[in-house]
Amino acid sequence: MGNFLAVYSKEMRSYFVSPVAYVIAGVFLFLSGYLFRSILMQFNMICLQLGQRAQQMGGGMPALNLNEMVVTQFFAVMDFIWLLIVPMLTMRLYAEEKKTGTIELLMTSPISSVQVLLGKFFACFSLYAIIVSLTMVYFLILEAYGSPDWGPIFSGYLGYLFLGATFISVGILASALTENQIVAVLLSFGILLMFWLIDWSASFAGPTAAKILQYVSFIEHLEDFQRGVIDSRDVVFYLSFTFFCLFLTTRVIESRRWRR
């Protein structure tokens, strides 16, 4: 536990003493804020148009669902931004240690590679969770002027935590495979995009293959959360994906010890 905390606090410190955390949080919040504003303006326009039409033609105003038209829309675009941002958070975790030789310190200290890995994973996950939770402000603004249904918002955020853990584990695995941070970023982009778009090919595949392809897609499982459904199958999917990548990472790191 002590070792885990030592690594965790070292990684957290390293995010916050360098500009990394601030720049990533800043860029992300700017982009997502801009998108949220655009979605909101669009919704506003639709409301206005429908209101005018109702006045001209008579008849009532159709019921517009704030969750469907704003919240779900916003979630759908934010997913993709995370796919671009998370590899930047994870790229240095192992690659830099390998490049500067500090991995030699970790490997020759009485600390297991699992403790190191968990320290790094949870530090990155905490930073991710902090940035994600900052976007909750947008929904508070929504609450001030309308009445969104908070259930799907909360479950959507829960989905983000699971999705984030999965993204981070993929990024860490990529970082452990190389000492070059650019390679680590590209590798994690590649893997994440692949699993993002994999259900596309489901439409051309046979029935069994289609089911498998749909199952391993990141998006499929996220949609449930964003509709307000917390399904244990989705939770199991994200958690097992995360564990698998973290397990592979320990194997990659440990391989130095058994490659004779």
Partner: peptide, 16 residues
């Protein structure tokens, strides 16, 4: 637990 090791390039975290 029992060794201290200084590799050829000191393993330093430069931002600390």
């Amino acid at each position: 637990k029992r060794i201290g090791y200084l590799p050829e390039t000191p393993p330093l975290y430069l931002d600390m």
